[in-house]
């Protein structure tokens, strides 16, 4: 098995193992991983595994909310709380993308909600 695949598999295993666990248990898992890698003389891979793991967390456990421009903090709080509730407690990252012109987009691992002015204009263009 090549190194990249090995790192990917370890990160995946760690991700699946830590799902639904408390902070203490997660720390224990990380320690176990470090010990296993040391036993196999592959401790040098640990930073890459962690990097891959964090990438997985970002992709699977966080929601990206794209806004055309910055909004009032109250409004953002409301949106974040609404999205967290809808998507089972996932955390929300706000990204400002002026190309959207107006409106918003919501992106999770499996779903993309398009509600920006840019998307509406594209739809109109297709319709014509």
């Amino acid at each position: 098995m090549n190194t990249k695949k090995y790192i990917s598999n370890l990160a995946e295993a760690l991700f699946l193992a830590q799902e639904g666990k408390k902070e203490e248990e997660k720390n224990k898992l990380a320690e176990n991983l470090r010990r296993i890698l040391k036993e196999r003389k592959k401790e040098y891979l640990l930073p890459k595994v962690i990097e891959k793991f964090e990438e997985m967390i970002s992709r699977r456990q966080r929601i990206k909310l794209f806004l055309a421009k910055d909004q009032k903090s109250d409004l953002i709080k409301k949106i974040k709380s609404f999205l967290s509730e809808k998507f089972k407690g996932k955390e929300v990252d706000i990204i400002i993308d002026q190309n959207l012109i107006g409106g918003f987009r919501v992106k999770t691992e499996n779903v993309l909600i398009k509600a920006s002015v840019k998307d509406f204009l594209n739809e109109f263009k297709t319709c014509l």
Partner: peptide
């Protein structure tokens, strides 16, 4: 044209 948010399943 009825413009409403579109939900796409992505990866």
């Amino acid at each position: 044209l009825k413009l409403k948010p579109k939900i796409e399943e992505i990866g």
